[in-house]
Design a protein around this nucleic acid. Structure first.
Lengths: 204, 204
DNA sequence: TTCTAAAATTGAGTCAATTCTGTTTTTATG
DNA sequence: CATAAAAACAGAATTGACTCAATTTTAGAA
């Protein structure tokens, strides 16, 4: 019945996320003190911890928003991929990368990745792993689509190939966010160069 | 030369590392309090921070020891690789993976990886990136060696291939340390399956 | 409307990493 | 040897994430 309590809860969630997102961007993850987030969201410190297990989970909620957008954008490519294996992969990778810095700064990505390895069993750690899996799955779906279209050999191990492509891209992205001066075009070019080896191997 | 001061310094370094390694293993990274490490090493908290920028750097020193051993073990394979591309890669990957849990527990690896992404510019962050590069380079050297031996096509982009193989392996290793129940044989099998696609593409 | 149990909020208190400042030890010099 | 500068040390103070017991608010029954 969408009672008062439920509405207030949703509203507090939103205020906390908005306050945190703003402060993470302004002051960086470490620089954004929980007290400051609480003050800006007009709730108490205790309330934040009632909603999120720890500071990392707040960042986690923001990351989920970003990655889900990326996944959505990727669906279009899978549905109607460019009629060329190299271009198809490049287009999908491009969408992932170009969307990735929309809400999250490199510093926020670094923190998010760090937390997800540090606490793999926390809510955020598990959510992050699930997001990675979804991305891998989407790449696998693209390969499957390309096989249907007769652009990729039928005898290719699609699952293994999807993992290979995702893992390489992801590792490149990790290195990318670790260096503030790294630029997107160079990242894309490097991944394209790596994928070229695979494209040669799997094309009909 | 080699005055008292230098000797005491080296000795204190050693004691701190030994105390930390023992406590990290016993109590985990978080569980090993700086005060406890200081007590066991018979120095004060302040002294530890005089030697290491932060707790992560202590772990970093231990990780470096481990990875350098791995690199050393790998040299043998590069010098005399198995006469088959798939086996050669599998042997090198195997050495990396089998040695990896010698001194470091999965939990210690998780922390180390997290810190290296979180603080890429700290002494440890930079060292970790350099170690990754060395491993990538060693894989590239193996490929180069296999090309000399006529086992891999000459027109293959060795640098890109080395990165691809390392990045995939590394990402698989990250997922491996994130799950306590994951086992080494399955990890190796999964990587072998992924590399099979590449082997088919690059063999003469 | 009034009352009660459940749910949610609050903020002072705890804990551990890191910083800071005064003291001690070592080295170099006369 | 004495001594002053430099280096290293010690541990108390600070800081900030997180906890928890007390208080307040809400939902629903009478």
């Amino acid at each position: 019945m969408s009672g008062l309590r439920a509405r207030q809860k949703a509203d507090r969630h939103r205020r906390i996320i908005e306050a945190a997102a703003a402060l993470f961007r302004e002051a960086g993850y470490e620089g954004a003190k929980i007290e400051a987030i609480a003050a800006q969201a007009e709730v108490s410190v205790g309330t934040i911890y009632n909603y999120y297990e720890n500071k990392g989970d707040i960042l986690g909620a923001i990351v989920s928003l970003e990655v889900n957008e990326v996944l959505n954008a990727g669906r279009g490519v899978v549905a109607r991929p460019p009629a060329n294996v190299g271009d198809a992969l490049d287009t999908l990778v491009g969408i992932y990368i170009e969307h990735s810095l929309h809400y999250l700064s490199k510093e926020m990505w670094r923190q998010a990745m760090a937390i997800s390895t540090q606490l793999p069993d926390s809510p955020f750690g598990q959510a992050y792993t699930a997001l990675d899996r979804s991305l891998t799955e989407q790449i696998r779906a693209l390969i499957s689509r390309l096989q249907e279209l007769g652009l990729v050999r039928r005898d290719i191990d699609g699952a293994a190939l999807g993992e290979l492509i995702f893992n390489n891209m992801n590792m490149m992205f990790i290195e990318f966010v670790k260096r503030d001066e790294a630029r997107i075009p160079e990242l894309r070019a490097a991944i394209r160069r790596q994928n070229r080896i695979l494209v040669a191997a799997i094309g009909v």
